[in-house]
């Protein structure tokens, strides 16, 4: 089942705007390799789950997969063939809001070609362009 918060302050949210590049979560912190997004947008919990499944399936349970973003924004939608009005629709999905430069996934405990292949499969599940990055050591 997809990720979602256990407790929220408000049941529904406004859409909001995404401006600028990411200033946090821009470096690989847990694994040795990561997947950095190059675009902005919403990543649904289903897409994140699909990415996680793709990576773990490819790695045959070797190594570790880390998800660095969490879908904490509720997205509401009205049912089909419904007239306008009568209040905001019910929550249909949970999304993570990401800015360019955010590290989405990390992989550790495997060699670089394996991590690259696994993260390429994850990137195919993401709704924006992504790139493979290595952990920066020292300076």
């Amino acid at each position: 089942m997809a990720m979602m918060p256990k407790r929220v302050l408000h049941r529904k949210q406004q859409r909001g705007k995404i401006r600028g590049n990411a200033t946090r979560c821009t470096t690989v912190a847990f694994g040795a390799y990561g997947l950095q997004c190059l675009g902005m947008g919403w990543i649904t919990a289903r897409q994140l789950e699909a990415g996680r499944v793709a990576a773990t399936h490819y790695l045959h349970r070797e190594g570790n997969v880390y998800i660095r973003v969490f879908p904490d924004k509720p997205i509401s939608a009205k049912p089909l063939e419904t007239r306008m009005g009568k209040g905001k629709g019910e929550t249909e999905a949970w999304v993570a809001v990401v800015k360019p430069g955010t590290i989405l996934f990390e992989v550790g405990g495997v060699d670089e070609p394996t991590a690259k292949a696994a993260l390429r499969r994850v990137a195919n599940k993401m709704p924006m362009r992504c790139r493979f990055v290595r952990r920066r050591h020292g300076l």
Partner: peptide, 17 residues
């Protein structure tokens, strides 16, 4: 195990409600 747990939690608890 995760899948079974996740199916039960359909909607999160609203704080203060």
């Amino acid at each position: 195990a995760e899948a079974v747990e996740g199916e039960e939690a359909a909607e999160p608890e609203v704080i203060g409600e």
